[in-house]
Amino acid sequence: MPFLELTMRCTEATQPRYENALEDVGAVAVTLLDADADTSNEQAILEPGVGQTPLWDSLVLTALFPEDTDALALLAALEAFDPGLDWAQVTFRQVADEDWERAWLDQFQPMQFGERTFIVPWNHELPEPARAPEAAVVRLDPGLAFGSGTHPTTALCLRWLDALAGEGLLQGRRVLDFGCGSGILALAALKLGAGEAVGVDNDPQALVASHDNAERNEVGARFAVYLPEDEPAGTYPVVVANILASALEALAATLAERVAPGGRIALSGILQGQEGELLERYAAWFDHLRCEQDGDWMRIEGVRRA
């Protein structure tokens, strides 16, 4: 399936705002390139590495959208989302699916998060530490659904889940992954000892990717996926939501209702500087709120008040 590709130049300082705007209006993938490099030798950053941000002063930012996306309507939506950004230099073209897949496979490498959580692509051998009996290994093929572990927002959540498992707070528990993308967080929780997991996403493609990844990791019987309107009512002792700050703000009451009294929540997808309002918002329901930072991104965690 081809895609509509949006390309533009930006600076290191403005890149997080542009990327945030593009994801908010439905980009299924974002790629960064050094704008001043020899493009014949340049390697794309499909998602910044864990704990890393691009070192380039000037970047070429590329985003993929579904083929049937209206380019003019997309520009209007972007200008409405962040009028302070300059969208005048945007160009569009149609690209084939395999262009993205080849680049993604070249970039995605095995990664470790915390003490024993490993994300390993299907086309790689297990690294030696991931062969240990206590290792929690997720074999991943995220396709075009967000969540391969390489983005700091995902890495922050994986380290949080790993730490919960180390404290014995995941064993046998029920976990909600709200905005599940590829299913990576729910799958990691199951591999770390959770009893069952539920994934919720408003993108049907994400639900397909999550279901397929669960089956390949042999945890399909313990992982159910739903569109938001179809999710069964209930509460969970562990909830993780790796979405955008604007969505975390709008869904605060909904997410709070999902967390059982005394349960834990992690919120990610938050740019540095956005955490203050969210801390104030979630303080209505949660105690022991604290932040963890990775590059320009933040994670908020807390404990649901009885």
Rank of each mutant, 00 (worst) to 15 (best):
Q272P: 00
H124G: 04
D141L: 09
S210T: 15
M1T: 10
W56T: 03
A88Q: 14
G143C: 04
F286E: 01
A35D: 15
D230L: 12
A73V: 09
G183F: 05
T235P: 01
P48A: 06
A135D: 06
D177P: 02
E115M: 08
S40D: 15
D296V: 14
G172A: 11
D230T: 06
V60L: 15
F118D: 04
V60K: 11
C10D: 03
L72K: 14
E229C: 06
D212W: 02
D287T: 13
Q15L: 14
E115Y: 08
T11F: 11
A73N: 13
L158T: 01
D82M: 10
A224S: 13
R116Y: 10
R258D: 03
G262H: 08
Q94N: 12
A224H: 08
S268D: 04
R299K: 12
L289N: 09
Q112K: 12
G51R: 15
G49Q: 09
Q43S: 12
G49M: 09
G295L: 05
E229Y: 10
E196M: 07
N123K: 10
N123M: 06
D106R: 15
E257Q: 12
A135L: 11
T235S: 14
V225R: 05
Q205K: 06
A186V: 02
I119R: 00
G26E: 08
R93G: 07
D212G: 02
V208I: 12
G84P: 03
V239W: 00
S148L: 02
F178K: 00
A29L: 15
S148M: 02
L64A: 01
W297A: 03
G234H: 09
S40T: 14
L78Q: 07
A283H: 09
Q109H: 15
G195L: 05
R290S: 15
L278A: 08
C10F: 04
R304I: 00
